[in-house]
Design a protein around this nucleic acid. Sequence first.
RNA 1: GCGCCGCUAGCUCAAUUGGCAGAGCAACUGACUCUUAAUCAGUAGGUUGAAGGUUCGAUUCCUUCGCGGCGUACCA
Length: 495
Amino acid sequence: MSPGRPMEEQHHLVQVRRQHLEELEQRGIDAYPHRYARSHRLAEVVAEGEKLAAAETKVMVAGRMMSKRRHGKTAFAHIEDEDARLQIYVRRDEVGDENYELFKLLEVGDHVGVEGSMMFTRTGELTVKAARVHLLGKTLRPLPEKWHGLTDKEIRYRQRYLDLLMNAEVRRDFRRRTEIIQTIRDVLIEDAFLEVETPILQPMYGGATARPFTTVYHALGDLKVYLRIADELYLKRLIVGGYDRVFEFAKDFRNEGMDRTHNPEFTMMECYAAYWDYEDVMGLVERVFARLAERFTEEGILQYGEHRIDFTKGFRRARFFDLLEEAVGQDLRKLSRDEVAAVARDLGVEVDESMGWGKLLDEIFSEKVEPTLIQPTFVCDHPRELSPLAKRHRSDPDLVERFEPFVAGFEVGNAFSELNDPRDQRARFEDQLRLREKGDTEAQRLDEDFLRALEYGMPPTGGLGLGIDRIVMLFTNRHSIRDVLFFPQMRPEGD
RNA sequence: GCGCCGCUAGCUCAAUUGGCAGAGCAACUGACUCUUAAUCAGUAGGUUGAAGGUUCGAUUCCUUCGCGGCGUACCA
């Protein structure tokens, strides 16, 4: 590990580079010029290679030098930019003595510009024959080895810039992250959703069950404020305010453990549509995944680890209690809280006394059903107790109109027919308060202003949250959330 | 939080039972005008994650700590 030490104490490899930098400056060369009049990106040169080489076209290209092979009075090197690499050929008798001396002082890692004409080498590789080489930015630290590259996960996560510059496939995956978000945004905008922004710092948190991060706001007398765990209650206020359809890509924060699928800050897309119910939202989720599958899979089949996931048939729809019954062999709906607890124990699911009926069912479901939900599935109609913001099921008051899309065994979202009856919403919050009094630190808070908003009338509304990081994991075939976040949470480096 | 594994040169990795800490690449010097993991000859590079202990002697064994990975728990 090489933490950033003061330059004075630097390693001899750094000292050598600093000496080269000084020598260059003594020759009057600016090691950090302001711009370079590039004529092509490398991918453009590569795409047009045949034509450019046939015409010996003059180009000005730029990139980071990733390899260098010197043979006396001639040399080859590769330069690389974001999405392509290109060989350069530098001959002393072409660039002149002075420029060749400059090139000798450049090293792997430096940013260089090359002015020259396109050609193919004897071995058939597209190459720029340099007429002149320019230094565009000097590197002071040595790059990891060219062959094995950088594999140490700690360095890859802590110094992501180094991971990105060494590993083109990592650059591609993060570019895809942006493309996935853009694809989802496109579908929403086509459906007339309006993109909005709501507060991250909130005086009262809500919209999910989780512990928050807290901070203080000095200007309001050290008022305790929270980083949002969800933006649900704010987006619903906007529906009350008369917007028809809204969405937000939100960074949410949850003060909980990290693992392969959890980072304390993560990205959730939430959207709400007036006059929709959860069946309408199912249609939206299917449109979103159909579009993602079209752009990012081969013919709708996604290879994720060992799984082949088929998006060509939409999502299977299955009810929460039916799936439970399939998995445990009996209908748990009519059982009492204690009977469910007994079933859970028999199944080897850990039970504790504070767990209510709904929580116990959820535990059994997580353990016995979720891992089996590989193909795209909507799990529908959950017990009411688990879902304090969802509307009662139109044909069964013990259930809510809710569904969770599952893919590859993980939950990628959550959706409801939104609860818009202010009396019922108040009663559900009060149930949560009772759970909190029993010691459930994650029970939801009663938000009086949100209730006031509902009392002004929210239309029937369908709402959805999508876990963006998990969706990116799916479509990049990555198995840790840390591989889809540029800068995952890490403990501070020691000295 | 708990369990297991790991941490050795800039990077990727070796080191027998506890017995002189090594290689490849990168770097430096020299040779080389179509190479591509360039080649050839030479040089330099280490507080073995940290502290303590056992021992004549510790990269190796023990204890504590730090960081990471994986699993598990918590967490929609």
